[in-house]
Design a protein around this nucleic acid. Structure first.
Lengths: 207, 207
DNA sequence: TAGATTGTTAATCGATTAACAATC
DNA sequence: TAGATTGTTAATCGATTAACAATC
């Protein structure tokens, strides 16, 4: 129960959740470290190590009660309360985001933003689209915690700073934010090109 | 110059490429490990360590010649030759993929696939759309190396196996492929929900 | 040459694994 | 109880860092 928790552990917690979602469909009540390990293609002792950072959730000789484990992992990840989210950029990627059922994961997209007049005032998958100029005020008014950036590269940094002005607490971005931002908040990236490049390396390596 | 190269090193090579793309605009001819380190927010010795796995590209007392370094990194990643790519799934995510300029990264999308009659026969961003039933044959005919899966979860595994039947060498998937596939090929995932969940954890941690 | 940065080694740090006592 | 799996510790493994010799 040390204090510093590896990021790899946090990522695996999300994979354990995915596993739990699948096996809940089978109606099972218990899951064992070996089940989670097989699903994630890792060792069972790593599963137990990961979970033990946060407490004792299992029963010796039996396993982990599924719904209790699920609740605990969600609590650890802060998913026990719905997180209000906004989306900047209503292009194809933005539309894809709006049509994913992220609410199942605990993320409610309360508003989307763009600069295109034709989009503003519409609703997409029940999410209203506003002009990007309003983003700061709407983040403030609704206490939005997470901002997703799906605008073109050259607008991304300005949008990030507008989100930060509004008091956003974390950013998920499809575009690289290379300048120093007004305030330090957690930022994560979706790097599709990088993943393709790593895949290319792995293919070449295989010969 | 050991043999086992950390995946983290490979990922950072892609970040070095991004850095090089930016600084090439400034017309510089030399980049130093410190420049790359600052861009990537890591230590300069890690940059040199990463590069030294693959040879000696720099000049002591001076730095790395930018275009030589770029060529070497691209070669390492297998990006010196254009990689033919197909896309399965022409929904919003698929369209977003088709409209990204991945050709700049060395990936040429030669065909897209879907099951919707209305889409088949069209071109999107100059990429022809075929019925998913044709994917195996087209992968074979064009020696396509990479497949991108952007279809709904429940169709993803079938599509993956069709790609493998065609002889695909690597897969980038937006959907989780949990079953054992017909043949082992490198698979990478874009996990948007997981990234949001990790972000949630980081936000909660900050208090 | 003097000043600089690379390439590399050894030391450090951190994450995973193996093993097993605890216990249901 | 006997059989099983968890939780945890110590050992191992691997990646990062600091430092500096090499050298442009």
């Amino acid at each position: 129960m040390g204090r510093k928790i590896p990021e790899a552990t946090i990522r695996r917690l999300t994979h354990y959740l995915r596993c739990i979602e699948f096996i809940k469909e089978d109606g099972d009540k218990i899951v064992q470290s070996r089940d989670l390990a097989t699903f994630c293609d890792i060792s069972d002792s790593l599963v137990r190590r990961d979970l033990s950072y946060f407490g004792e959730f299992g029963t010796k000789g039996v396993g982990y009660p599924i719904s209790k484990l699920e609740d605990h992992i969600k609590k650890i990840l802060g998913l026990d309360k719905i997180k209000k989210t906004v989306l900047a950029g209503v292009g194809n990627m933005g539309r894809a985001i709006l049509n994913f059922p992220f609410i199942k994961n605990g993320f409610q997209i309360v508003a989307a933003f763009d600069v295109k007049k034709a989009l503003i005032g519409n609703k997409i998958n029940n999410v209203p689209v506003f002009h990007i100029e309003d983003i700061k005020e709407i983040i403030k008014r609704h206490s939005v915690e997470i901002g997703i950036i799906a605008v073109p590269q050259k607008e991304a940094e300005e949008v990030a700073n507008k989100m930060i002005d509004g008091g956003i607490r974390g950013i998920l971005s499809f575009a690289l934010l290379k300048c120093p931002l007004k305030k330090k908040v957690p930022i994560r990236y979706i790097e599709i090109a990088a993943e393709l490049e790593i895949l290319s390396y792995e293919i070449e390596k295989e010969g």
